[in-house]
Design a protein around this nucleic acid. Sequence first.
DNA 1: CAGTGGTCTAGACCACTGG
DNA 2: CAGTGGTCTAGACCACTGC
Lengths: 265, 265
Amino acid sequence: MPSPSHSPYTDASGPAAEAVGALGVPAFSPLYQQIKGLILQSLQSGEWKPGEVILSENDLAARYRVSQGTVRKAIDELSSEHLLVRRQGKGTFVATHAEQQVQYRFLRLMPDPGQEHLTALAERRMIDCKRVRASAELARLLGLRAGDALIQVRRVLAFGGVPTILEDIWLPGSSFKGLTLERLQDWRGPMYAMFESEFGVRMVRAQEQVRAVMPDPTQAEWLELAGPTPLLNVERVAYTYNDAPMEVRRGLYRTDRHHYFNTLN
Amino acid sequence: MPSPSHSPYTDASGPAAEAVGALGVPAFSPLYQQIKGLILQSLQSGEWKPGEVILSENDLAARYRVSQGTVRKAIDELSSEHLLVRRQGKGTFVATHAEQQVQYRFLRLMPDPGQEHLTALAERRMIDCKRVRASAELARLLGLRAGDALIQVRRVLAFGGVPTILEDIWLPGSSFKGLTLERLQDWRGPMYAMFESEFGVRMVRAQEQVRAVMPDPTQAEWLELAGPTPLLNVERVAYTYNDAPMEVRRGLYRTDRHHYFNTLN
DNA sequence: CAGTGGTCTAGACCACTGG
DNA sequence: CAGTGGTCTAGACCACTGC
């Protein structure tokens, strides 16, 4: 393992041992990337759960026999991916959706200027939660086979009494056994926080596709639309650790008092 | 200035000299943040132009009398904000919109699966470029006064012969003197690349608000819509260095063969 | 080959938290 | 006060580029 007297590059032992690519070509992978992978494994295996402290940088450095700076760089990346959260003086924590500050981290619908008071008046109406079979399309998105068991949830989010979001959510039945309408209704806090504590599934990343659509009559009824109203159709696939898809969600958003917000860097 | 024998924290000379907050409270600001600010100033002042190499890390370290590691951390952040681009073995370059790889970095409309061929068939139709006066709304967004001179550009983007995007663009007249329809039509490449090389304005960041709307008859005509079609209304404010707003843009996007794409982290 | 960015280390000290 | 993350340095060496 790395030690002061020899270079980490020429040393084939330690955590870097099998850094060899598919073709036998030595695929160079920096030490800190390998450390990052090891920490990631510990997160996936549940060694540290959402909200908990992980080992200190010094302890991790000792565990992996590398310098603190190398551990630090690994944590830097995990932290910028929102998998870990650093708190100076306290430690490094596993990120969670159950924090006041980052609630609804994935919801990009914001109140228009002058409508900010609506956020405080949010109200969730759980409509349905049932077992269904995966269509070809849903199976493809979730990496399953058509016909596999899914759980489908339907709900409405209202702001200031105005139904604004109609959502259908599909989850792999195998990972969410025992999810019922009642448990959803009783839960306080973000749904993704419930997934963490009740099912051990942490959503880490998501992709959305947005289109403009006209609602069908059923959808219009749930949103209590008076006349024909164009809506945003937001299709989301959410991923856990190691980029495994774990949720598909289709939301219909009213945008007369809200807008979908995005920052381009 | 910092040197091996004394701590950078207790040294009040060098680039860190006036790190004192508004209330006389010593507002601690890390050295690398100050270096970052100094590099940012050089970018704003045009010492290095988009596409050019900047000083090497060693040279910057010498210039600012800090270690290479500190310069490195400053460049790390500027690089993650897409203001600089590192190329191993070659140097660090000022980011530009005039690169093949990152063309249309801010355009989030993507072809639907099976429609990817459309991207190659893009076609721009410049419609209009005229001087107007800022409305109260536009003035607010651009940090100007109502009535100030603006340049308004209207154009259509078509894919595979289908008009898909109708855009209105507003620019501060003071920064874009001499922008004409003809120059826009003659320009090959991204509009933001033209802003860089012709007007010295580099767009660095942008925010978008997306809503679902029905087009008015004029808009429907430009997009050659047969019947009533809901569209995405995308309002963008783009910013240069130091977060100064330099462009407002309203786009109407057809989403029957395309979608607005977003990644949530 | 020299020059650039990229990685890794070891050690020192600062800023923050909590007992 | 000890323990945590955060900053800074100096030096060594690797990976990549182009002459």
